Simulated scan of single mutants.
Amino acid sequence: MENRRSIRKYKPDEIERKLIEEIIYSASLAPSAKNRQPWKFIIYQGKEKDKLVDVMRHGINSEKTTHELMPEWAFAIPDAENTVRIMQE
């Protein structure tokens, strides 16, 4: 824990599929409450990731102007925008 760090900038390098699979496998071994293991992993890369970012950006912009879907979550919009920004890098 002492050497833990939070990464906020990512390299644009493509990650090998085998490494992604190893990471997901390791994550699936993490403990969960009552051993429910509710893990779901979805990997987006390339054009599909770009489409997802566009959909997310559209939803955020819509929510910023209307607050129709989740008015009680308006405070979370900056965090959502930050997630989209990170995904674009």
Rank of each mutant, 00 (worst) to 15 (best):
M1I: 05
E2H: 12
R4L: 02
R4F: 12
R5M: 13
R5Q: 06
S6D: 10
S6V: 06
S6G: 09
I7W: 12
R8N: 04
K11H: 14
K11Q: 06
K11I: 06
P12F: 03
D13T: 02
E14Q: 05
E14D: 05
E14T: 15
I15D: 02
E16Y: 07
E16L: 09
E16Q: 08
R17H: 03
R17V: 07
K18A: 06
L19R: 12
I20F: 11
E21L: 07
E21C: 07
E21V: 04
I23A: 13
I23F: 08
I24A: 02
Y25Q: 14
S26E: 06
S26H: 12
A27H: 10
S28D: 14
S28N: 15
L29T: 08
L29W: 15
A30H: 02
P31R: 07
S32G: 14
S32I: 02
S32L: 03
S32N: 05
S32M: 01
A33I: 06
K34N: 02
N35M: 01
N35L: 08
N35Q: 03
Q37R: 01
P38T: 05
P38N: 05
W39A: 12
K40C: 04
F41V: 04
F41P: 00
I42H: 02
I42R: 11
I42C: 07
I43L: 14
I43E: 13
Q45G: 11
Q45K: 06
Q45L: 15
G46P: 11
G46K: 11
G46E: 04
G46L: 02
E48V: 08
E48H: 09
K49H: 02
D50H: 06
K51V: 15
K51A: 03
K51H: 15
L52D: 00
L52A: 09
V53W: 01
D54S: 09
D54W: 04
V55W: 03
V55G: 11
V55M: 10
V55R: 15
M56E: 10
M56G: 02
M56W: 09
M56N: 08
R57I: 03
G59T: 07
G59V: 08
N61G: 10
N61T: 13
S62G: 10
S62L: 09
S62E: 04
E63A: 05
E63P: 00
K64P: 08
T66L: 06
H67Q: 10
H67P: 02
H67T: 05
H67R: 13
H67M: 10
M70I: 09
P71S: 12
E72C: 15
E72F: 09
W73Y: 07
A74L: 15
A74F: 03
A74N: 11
F75D: 10
F75N: 03
F75A: 11
A76N: 05
A76S: 14
I77N: 00
P78D: 04
P78N: 04
D79M: 08
D79Y: 03
D79G: 14
D79C: 11
D79F: 13
A80Y: 12
E81F: 01
E81K: 01
E81P: 00
N82V: 08
N82A: 12
T83Y: 04
T83N: 10
T83L: 07
T83K: 04
V84S: 00
R85D: 15
I86H: 09
I86K: 14
I86R: 03
M87G: 03
Q88I: 08
Q88N: 14
E89N: 01
